[in-house]
Design a protein around this nucleic acid. Structure first.
Lengths: 266, 266
DNA sequence: AAGTGGTCTAGACCACCAG
DNA sequence: TGGTGGTCTAGACCACTTT
């Protein structure tokens, strides 16, 4: 007879900094997704665990089954869950990967493998964008941009050279950050949602400067990953990430089907 | 007072060879998706075109709005459409790319750029899998696998060396194909659905054999893309695709938001 | 004000898997 | 056979864009 949708006030499980402010309160299905991801990441629901059925979740969340279904279906598409008709919904083994399509943070990757992550900041400045850079950042030539060059180490071995430019208009306080504690990727992701992401991957022979910064022997090729990210039609940042061939490779595994490798038992 | 779901008989727009047989008739929302993709690919609905509203589609397909909504939402997630609340649904510019996450066919890429695609088959045989290969293909050592080595040319310049192994159990008639007409990727994709896909990307210095096959100068690095694909838990094929650095790079652009670059007007 | 997409509901029928 | 997920319906309220 009146309001069908009973909007609940915000609960603790939703904080999204800027995106929250920009996008308004989260829809129910996304809150359910977040709560489930939290359960998985905290270890409450370990890999292989059979999570409550849709009907159980309908009961505990007090929502319609279609809403729970959408949350579970999307989490399944995103690789968190495997759904088997007639049997149940299970937490998948691999907690996401695919460093190519996603915006992953080198510090997390290094730590996840049990190594020590350190950085060396080579350069950090505010410059006027020359023509080619302005083109890549889709701004006018001569406009101000931040430029930072840093090297990431895994157990004191250099594994990534990061050469990054940042739009000063979108992130004016970028250079004030302490990038020893929080990598630029981490900082930017936490601050600005990413609408669009572009990657180019090349094999290159490093130039002398790169060889020195990465402490490379002669004739060792590198992977060069060029990345640009957009928010509301503006380029937020563009970076060239250079990896020594012998110390790094890009990896991505992607399931197109729910039953990808995780069975109910086992 | 009885059946709510009125299953319509198959119409022409759904043919999926094996997947059709395996997965049964397509659900309505997927048939709608396919018809829309057909409209886009045929050029009936060009980039920027505003497609009929959900309510119009509800009328023409005689289905519920939720069903149309699911079709459009998924096509938007997949990058075909951009949806703008209050304004409409628009065909996006880039008809999909992201050669990394997806399984793209080198011949299509070359032709799409207006070049001539040719191949040279270097080797084609059935062999007993040695231990390391058996591991990668998740079969027993010594089991039979197909092995094919070929070079892809763009306007007679070699751009890709394809070194592929195929599971004989899943695709027994693989070697009978004419790969001058239809690339292995194309053939396999048309035959077997892909449940899961793994990619690894390295920078390498080519060995002498690779240098010769790709007609490379000294000291030119290459991108090596290692790919494995699964169907129902079995590795169908594994391939190493080697690209000369100067002639090829991997590219991927990915919108996480509906409004990714395509406005209603413009 | 009219139209659009975003979300949600409370039901329904079905195919599938387990005990 | 009972529970599970897969899909679908016919309605609803809302925020937003366009006219």
């Amino acid at each position: 007879m009146s309001k069908i949708v009973e909007q609940k006030p915000d609960d603790k499980s939703s904080r999204q900094s800027i995106s929250e402010l920009l996008r308004g309160p989260e829809p129910i299905y996304r809150r359910i997704k977040n709560q489930i991801i939290t359960k998985i990441k905290s270890g409450d629901w370990p890999p292989g665990f059979r999570i409550p059925s849709e009907n159980k979740l309908v009961g505990s969340f007090k929502v319609s089954r279609m809403t729970v279904n959408r949350a579970l279906r999307e989490l399944s598409q995103e690789g968190y869950l495997a759904r088997v008709q007639g049997a149940g919904t299970f937490v998948k083994e691999l907690p996401q990967q695919s460093s190519l399509l996603e915006l992953r943070n080198i510090a997390d990757e290094i730590k996840a493998r049990g190594h020590k992550h350190t950085v060396r900041i080579v350069q950090s400045a505010e410059i006027a964008a020359p023509g080619d850079l302005a083109g890549r950042m889709e701004i006018a030539a001569g406009e101000s941009v931040f430029h930072i060059i840093m090297v990431h180490f895994s157990d004191d071995v250099p594994v990534q050279l990061e050469d990054r430019y940042v739009n000063t208009f979108v992130v004016p306080e970028f250079l004030q950050q302490n990038f020893v504690e929080l990598t630029p990727t981490e900082y930017l992701v936490s601050l600005i949602p990413v609408d669009e992401l572009e990657h180019r991957v090349q094999a290159i022979m490093p130039n002398p400067e790169q060889m020195e910064l990465l402490d490379l022997p002669a004739h060792e090729p590198c992977l060069a990953l060029h990345r640009r990210s957009w928010f509301r039609g503006q380029v937020v940042t563009t970076a060239v990430l250079t990896y020594p061939a012998s110390r790094y490779e890009l990896y991505s595994r992607y399931a197109t089907t729910p039953a990808g490798g995780m069975g109910p038992s086992s």
